[in-house]
Structures are given as C-alpha cells and as structure tokens.
C-alpha cells in the first residue's frame, strides 16, 4: 500500500521552476530518502506534500488524500519537522508538548501518555520544566521529532532533521526513525549525509527540480555505475586529481580524504593497467591502488557530474 503518490508535482515561483514534474511513490512504513543538493527543490516538495504550498500543477495523494483538494485532511495524517528548529525556545519542554498536543486535539490521559513517551525518547524525564532553548542540539531534535509525531500520524516528513547535529546524536536519531518505521509510520526524510541515505529503504535523487534517479541503495549502485571505481593513494594527490580530469579514459574523479576515487571508462579492467597508464602520463608515483565497490556518494557524484 502506498502512503504517498506524487504525480507530476510541479512548483513554479514566477519564471523559476523549483520542482519540475516529479513523480514517485512511497510505501507504507518505509523510510524514504529524498536527496539532492541545496536548492534542488527538496524543501519545496516537502512543503507541497504537507499542504504548506500549493502545487502549480500536478497533484499528490498523501495518506490517500489529495494535497490539492483535501489539504485539511492531509494535515490530520501527517507530522512535519522542518529544517529549522520550530518549537518555542521560550517555553518549557512540558509547555511545548502540551501546546502541540492540544493543537492536535489531545488532552487528558492520551496527552499524558504521549508526553511520557516523548520525554522517554528525548531523555528528558524529570526535565519538563527546563526551557527548551537551553537544551543541546541533539536533544532538541529528538524533542522536535517526538512532538511532530505526538498525534501518531501515518506519515512523518523530516526536512534535514540531522543537519548541525553531532555524529553520536545523529546515530541515535536514526535509531528513533527506525523504531517509528517498525511501528508502521512512513518516514519521508531529506538529508545531506549520504551515509544516512544508506539507512533508507528507498531513495530518490533530484537535481534542479528534476528527478534523476530512484531505487534502493543496492539498485542505485549497480544500475547507475557499470564501470569500475579505483581508490588511489599518492603523495601528489592534488596534481594527480587535476591531471586525471583531462584523461580520456577517466569518467570522473573526486577526492575522498587522503585518497581519490577514480571512475574509468569500460576499456580499463585491471588496477595494474590503470596504474601504469597514470604513472606514465602524469609522472606522479602512486603508492596504492585498488578496486572498490561504489558508495552512494560515488553514484551521486557520477550522476550529478554526468549531467554537467
């Protein structure tokens, strides 16, 4: 069963097309990753799906309701956590929970039960009277997520929930996302971190408002990358990078820490072959070379570079 079905969703701001005929579907209970560079149209798409923006053309069904005609009903089945922290910093933890619970029509025991749950997942038990603004970033994010799903929505939209959060908090945040998904909540998440995208059961990639790839991580790696990728180490890494870019048998090359990843055309199969060619052409000595399985980052760099 599909939780979200987007059908040629388009949003124009004047003459600028932010989202261009994007179609996809999200199954119930899955973690759906929505990737793209800054300004690619991720937030605009999420805002349309949440009923914050009206699509210029196209439509989407969210929880079975049309975002165009039944925006009011859409709002009852979704939770939304925006890119910016949007709880009240000048209210206490308890006041924030009670306010949003109240706005969703929760009160009495059902509100109490959800409040306890949020305090548990955010590790804020006993800190109900703490001002929200004084909490550390990671805790704030968990509190915001808890508040976004206070009314147990079928679908929750998370717009870059972990940006600016330390790696440990990010890890525990994703555990929380998994547990929501296991309980049957559909999680629609945008992220910058490609290692986070590996946690998603399905991914779409958009660029300049257009959908350019979709599928699960395994499919993306095998479908979009057919040629070999080599990881190369060398003392002259930067010079090597610059020279390699111009070579005919190099598809794309990018730097990864203290090595470079180099995708070759199909004519090269062996590491030794590539090593010899590179050393003889550039005169730079390689200290290590090996074939590696592509990461999602390789896939996306390939796709985005390929477009240019």
């Amino acid at each position: 069963m599909n939780s979200i079905v987007a059908d040629n969703l388009t949003k124009k701001f004047g003459s600028f097309t932010s989202v261009d005929s994007v179609s996809f579907s999200v199954k119930q209970g899955e973690i759906f990753g929505f990737l793209g560079a800054n300004g690619a149209g991720k937030s605009t798409t999420i805002k349309m799906l949440c009923g914050l923006l009206e699509p210029t053309s196209g439509d989407a069904a969210v929880g079975g309701y049309s975002i165009k005609k039944e925006a009011d009903k859409v709002k009852t089945v979704i939770g939304y956590m925006s890119q910016r922290f949007s709880l009240y910093n000048d209210l206490t933890v308890g006041e924030n929970i009670n306010f949003f619970g109240g706005v969703y029509g929760l009160y009495g025991n059902s509100l109490k039960e959800r409040r306890e749950w949020i305090l548990d997942i955010a590790n804020l038990r006993g800190k109900e009277n703490t001002l929200t603004g004084s909490l550390p970033g990671g805790v704030k994010q968990r509190l915001a997520l808890g508040t976004a799903v206070i009314h147990r929505p079928e679908i929750v939209f998370l717009d870059e929930p972990t940006s600016g959060v330390d790696p440990v908090s990010r890890r525990s945040f994703w555990e929380l996302i998994h547990s929501l998904s296991e309980e049957g909540t559909t999680v629609f998440v945008t992220t910058h971190y490609l290692e986070e995208a590996e946690f998603c059961s399905n991914i779409i990639l958009i660029d300049a408002g257009r959908l350019i790839a979709e599928g699960n991580s395994k499919f993306l790696k095998s479908n979009y990358i057919t040629n070999k990728i080599f990881e190369i180490r060398s003392p002259g890494l930067i010079e090597l990078l610059d020279s390699a870019k111009k070579l005919p048998f190099v598809e794309d090359v990018s730097i990864f820490g203290n090595s470079i990843h180099l995708m070759v055309t199909s004519e090269i199969e062996e590491a030794d072959d590539l090593k010899n060619r590179l050393e003889s052409i550039t005169g730079i000595k390689l200290t290590g070379i090996e074939v590696i399985p592509p990461s999602l980052e390789d896939v996306f760099i390939h796709l985005l570079e390929g477009k240019k």
């Binding site: 709002k75 949003f100 969703y104």
Partner: peptide, 13 residues
C-alpha cells in the same frame, strides 16, 4: 521568522 508559524500551519488548526 523563527518558523513556528509553519509548524502550527501543518497541524489541522
């Protein structure tokens, strides 16, 4: 400005 209005608008209010 701080984005809380958006958070309120996505509720059925």
């Amino acid at each position: 400005e701080i984005g809380t209005l958006e958070q309120i608008i996505v509720t059925p209010i």
